[in-house]
């Protein structure tokens, strides 16, 4: 039996920039980007589920983020996670990787009883790959980054294949260990229809507060109780729940600061519309010949 905690993150979909999120000056309107489940974290969850299927145990997914990050926790439940936690507090906002790893490591200590911590190698918004190793350091456990395959687990040791520059290596790590995975490690399974039906109504504290807002017949506490009974409550861990040092959270706990941001201008040059007719094509060819591009 091996228990896993999986670190997941909701990220803006920076890979698929469409015209809809572009501002007129050719820069990206970041607030309009759709929020998605960071792919490598999904791969990490898949690996944790495979460990559970092969050896038994429990899979817990956790994310630190704003209330709407509970979207990806529901997706974790659809894939097969046993329990999920939303780690959310206004005081966590603006955290760099050091402050994030502090909060995550304390949440992991609170959840406890784990053999594996899995996470994606990096998230596509910052691409830093720092939170994994920084969390491992704070938990004082070994780390294996860039993992691409679990070869076996026995006698409280895991043998893994990991990518290195210009090749790969096989390593054996004692448990508990933190593992970050690259996308080649697994193909995340599709959502199970049964689980979607079972968990689509799962709600976090903020979700329930929204339900009771302006409805004097509903009480948040009653709803929490009811949702918990039905196994549909997404537990939220706040600063107070984790008894954290406020100076190590959010902007305050972040040594790195963003001094300046310049948007990359993705604007194209002038465009000329060519009608898909014989005349249109003729005009295009004339124009190209005139510019010495053709002929």
């Amino acid at each position: 039996m091996y228990n896993s905690i999986v670190l997941v993150k909701q990220v803006p979909d920076t890979a698929n920039i469409s015209g809809k999120v572009m501002k007129e000056d050719g820069t990206v309107n970041r607030s309009k980007l759709p929020a998605i489940f960071n792919h490598e974290d999904k791969v990490a969850l898949e690996l944790a589920l495979q460990v559970k299927e092969k050896y038994g145990g429990k899979v817990t997914a956790i994310t630190m983020g704003p209330p709407r990050a509970s979207d990806i926790l529901r997706e974790c439940l659809y894939m097969g996670a046993d329990e999920v936690f939303l780690i959310s507090d206004r005081k966590f906002a603006g955290a760099d990787t050091l402050a994030t790893s502090y909060v995550l490591s304390e949440a992991i200590n609170k959840i406890g009883n784990y053999h594996f911590i899995f996470g994606g190698r990096q998230a596509i918004d910052g691409d830093t790959a720092q939170v994994g190793p920084q969390t491992a350091d704070k938990l004082n456990i070994p780390q294996v980054t860039y993992a691409e395959q679990i070869i076996d687990i026995k006698k409280n040791k895991v043998t893994l294949k990991r990518k290195i520059d210009g090749g790969h290596e096989i390593v054996r790590a004692a448990l508990p260990v933190l593992i970050t995975v690259i996308k080649e490690a697994a193909d995340p399974r599709p959502f199970s229809a049964k689980r979607v039906m079972a968990y689509k109504g799962a709600k976090s504290l903020t979700d329930l507060e929204k339900l009771t807002e302006g409805n004097s017949l509903l009480y948040t506490d009653t709803l929490i109780h009811e949702y918990r009974e039905r196994n549909l409550f997404i537990s939220t861990l706040t600063m107070d729940d984790l008894e954290l040092d406020v100076d190590r959270c959010g902007v305050k706990g972040s040594p790195t600061k963003v001094h300046k941001v310049e948007s990359v201008v993705l604007a194209g040059g002038n465009q000329t519309m060519v009608e898909p007719t014989k005349d249109g094509i003729g005009t295009l060819i004339d124009k190209l010949m005139e510019d010495h591009i053709l002929g």
């Binding site: 803006p12 920076t14 890979a15 920039i17 820069t27 990206v28 970041r30 596509i124 918004d125 691409d127 790195t256 600061k257 963003v258 001094h259 300046k260 941001v261 310049e262 948007s263 990359v264 993705l266």
Partner: peptide, 9 residues
């Protein structure tokens, strides 16, 4: 942000 911004840290 996937290369869409250049940040000075």
């Amino acid at each position: 942000f996937g290369g869409n911004i250049i940040a000075t840290i």
